[in-house]
Design a protein around this nucleic acid. Structure first.
Lengths: 255, 255
DNA sequence: GAGTGGTCTAGACCACGAC
DNA sequence: TCGTGGTCTAGACCACTCG
């Protein structure tokens, strides 16, 4: 079904529709190389600019991956990690596994954290309000990039009241077995519950680079607040999660 | 800081960087009109094609809205609705309010549902596995588009075993006060818990149209399974939620 | 009508990857 | 070396919005 230049619909959109259909129908399966831009020019009788506009549409929808000098390929879905609300069980912490480590290993990958920053900073407004301190108060931040094998999965910043973690393993590069949550409990802050707030959005160019995201891949901004049994917030966790590599799963009681 | 044509970084990316910086810094506040393409051509000394490439970058990042014949504007964040895990309390159902109605009214909007389809269909694989029926089994589907005032918020498909809801208000246009969940409980299926699975991704062109999404706006695919006190799945709810109009909030116990 | 973005063309040169 | 995508230009005509 060739393009109709008299149609109201722009030619590049018709071309995009055609190619999208071939992808969705499986005529072009994941990993397949699409025809080159020059080939598509003759196939559709359009200029290169128009062909490139059509390909840009598919790219922005997250359907393709472009490799300079090689071609345009139908995107393969990478392995998806499931982050479920059960990842915060005390059982896991007691076993010496942090939430990220446990989930990653459960999926058969090797977890790794790359420290980007450790230090005392003034609390940003959104952290202060959740952590129950005033804006600008001294808080300790652990900023990391988390990897599964060789794939960057998320950017993760943990904030603590400085007075609470000073001199503990939480301010060290390696927070020890079970991670920060295990250390907090050893310090006497028994964890009672977490709240997670999620928003989906497109990444900034820096985030896209740090997480190796192609065009048309959103991120999930996830902010978690951890409360102890007194109802006091003890940590604010601010992360940017690669949208194409995760699902989130929550259990909700009906009452 | 004008562009540097000798730089490795493409001219259109440098222009995009410059304009993005003006947006993030507030020099160009939300709602402001950006300079026209012709004006940007003289400002940056580039051809129109290059200027449009730069503007396309900002658009794909969700930073701008384009209005044909009027100009390019810095995108305003629309009012954001918070979907919290507390929206499924029995208290609300007993008060005759479904989850969507309750959340929408809590934000000061008027909820409305537009029925797209009501009928018996063969169960798709992902529904069948969650609902505990075999693929292709007869299930009843309620397909709607949900609105808050005049803004489309989500596409929502509810699936039920047909034998379970046949002849009940659930197969009618208006499922009645408290929605389907209230009807299910009246039928003797007391709800015990829900599971929600979320994925962020870019919308298909149809989804973008149905939800009035601009370029660079992702959606959240949310699939909820409702279980009764026997542990039996009684509904599968498959929705596509406008990413720029929602946050999600979940409470997680620590044990 | 004047100004704005939307679409399309034709052609040029560059950078990357595979053979 | 050759084919692939990446970038940029100059120009044309169209469609929408506003005064």
């Amino acid at each position: 079904m060739p393009v109709d230049p008299t149609s109201d619909r722009a030619v590049f959109r018709q071309i995009a529709d055609e190619l999208r259909q071939e992808i969705k129908s499986g005529t072009l399966p994941p990993g397949a190389r699409m025809a080159s831009e020059r080939e598509l020019m003759t196939r559709f009788g359009a200029s290169r600019g128009t062909i490139r506009q059509a390909l840009a549409v598919l790219s922005s929808e997250g359907l393709t991956d472009v490799q300079h000098g090689r071609g345009v390929f139908v995107r393969k879905r990478p392995p998806i990690m499931r982050l479920s609300s059960e990842r915060f069980t005390r059982q896991l912490r007691d076993a010496g596994k942090g939430a990220f480590q446990a989930e990653t290993e459960a999926h058969g990958f090797e977890p790794r954290q790359e420290i980007l920053e450790l230090g005392v900073v003034p609390a940003p407004a959104y952290v202060a309000s959740r952590l129950g301190v005033h804006e600008g108060a001294r808080v300790f931040v652990r900023r990391r990039r988390m990897w599964a094998d060789d794939v960057p999965m998320q950017l993760a910043d943990s904030y603590f009241r400085y007075g609470m973690v000073r001199g503990t393993p939480i301010v060290e590069k390696d927070a020890g077995p079970g991670g920060s949550y295990a250390r907090l409990e050893e310090l006497g802050y028994r964890l009672a519950r977490f709240r997670e707030d999620l928003v989906a959005r497109m990444p900034s160019p820096e985030e896209a680079r740090a997480l190796h995201l192609g065009p048309g891949v959103p991120v999930v901004s996830l902010i978690r607040t951890a409360y102890d049994t007194e109802g006091k917030p003890v940590e604010v966790f601010d992360s940017v999660v690669a949208g194409d590599k995760h699902t989130f799963s929550y259990e909700i009681p009906a009452d």
